[in-house]
């Protein structure tokens, strides 16, 4: 071997396709701490670590055969003492006198190997952390979704409860409590402005007789039908409610006395005209319209007085509170 190559500042080794070591320079031999005759003619496995032997078969050999060169491959050599020597290796496949040689140069990369190991370790840790972070974010997302679902369920439930709380079970109209609230808010909304507000109170005439004669089931059906009729007669912004027993109420926002009486009369007429089956049914109606100084309770008591007057006046009629003689 050329002396310059023999002592070059890199290892040189030439292999045949059986991976037999044909030539090896002094630099590499001394790096491995062998004598020339101990390695020449031997299989490359002699100077490879366990992992490198496999790696050589899996990567080095196919590459040098198929691509005729190998560049910057990291493997580990095994010195005579068994010590591992990480090296970087370049190889090319060359033909000389009709034979093929896989010529390799290599140099130790002990320190670089340490750097790279440290970098790889750091990278693995980062990857691991990123994976964990991703997993945690996914878990959080899942929890957030669950929370949202639960919240929506809760909102729906609350909405259901709210409806139940303000609805009269038998007629499906608003109940007394809700009527009270609606009346307060309607008055608050309109009393300040110039919009009139009216209230109708309605009572089914001789309802006790219906119950007594035909039974409570029939009585309930009459109440339900009355609720349906009232719903039908009320406008979108009106609030129809069961006031209690056989008594009903209708809040009429933006409605003056004249209009309120018209509506009341129409309802009374419809009730009288409706087919109630076994007996005729009529209602008495008391109406009141908000005037300055009124409160929701004064308005209710005026309407109540008017209803009383309708009852006393012979039932099946409408009376407005402002027409009562004081």
């Amino acid at each position: 071997m050329d002396e310059r190559l023999d002592y070059a500042p890199c290892g040189y080794i030439s292999l045949n396709d059986d991976s037999t070591i044909l030539e090896i320079n002094k630099t590499l031999i001394s790096l491995l701490d062998y004598e020339l005759q101990e390695v020449q003619g031997q299989h490359i496995n002699l100077i490879l670590t366990r992992a490198s032997k496999t790696f050589y078969q899996l990567y080095f050999f196919p590459m040098i055969r198929l691509q005729e060169k190998v560049e910057a491959m990291y493997i580990a050599l095994k010195a005579k003492s068994g010590q591992e020597i990480p090296i970087l290796l370049n190889a090319s496949r060359n033909e000389r006198e009709g034979k093929f040689f896989n010529d390799c140069v290599c140099f130790p990369m002990k320190e670089r190997y340490e750097y790279e190991q440290a970098l790889l370790t750091a990278k693995r840790e980062t990857d691991q952390r990123n994976r964990m972070k991703k997993k945690q974010i996914e878990e959080l997302d899942l929890l957030r979704n669950e929370l949202e679902c639960k919240q929506n369920e809760l909102l729906e439930l609350n909405e259901k409860l709210r409806k139940l709380a303000e609805t009269d079970g038998l007629t499906g109209l608003k109940n007394r409590r809700c009527l009270q609230e609606s009346l307060t808010s309607t008055i608050n909304l309109h009393a300040g402005g110039s919009q009139p507000v009216s209230l109708l109170l309605m009572d089914i005439d001789y309802f006790k007789d219906i119950n007594d004669t035909f039974g409570h089931m029939t009585g309930d059906r009459v109440l339900q039908e009355m609720g349906r009729l009232l719903e039908e007669e009320s406008r979108k912004e009106d609030v129809a409610a069961r006031y209690g027993g056989e008594e009903f109420a209708l809040i009429l926002p933006n409605t003056d006395k004249f209009e309120a009486l018209k509506i009341a009369e129409r309802i009374r007429w419809h009730v009288e005209q409706a087919d109630w089956g076994k007996s005729a049914i009529t209602i008495s109606v008391g109406a009141a319209t908000f005037v300055p100084g009124d409160t929701e309770s004064s308005l209710q008591s005026k309407a109540d007085n008017a209803l009383y007057a309708s009852k006393n006046g012979g039932r099946n009629q409408v009376t407005h509170a402002s027409d009562l003689k004081l």
Binding site: T49, R50, A51, S52, T54, F55, L58, Y59, M73, Y74, I75, A76, Y113, E116, Q117, L120
Partner: peptide, 12 residues
């Protein structure tokens, strides 16, 4: 041994 091999693949 196998982990060493995969380690070598990683390094490469």
């Amino acid at each position: 041994d196998l982990e060493g091999l995969i380690g070598m693949m990683e390094m490469n």
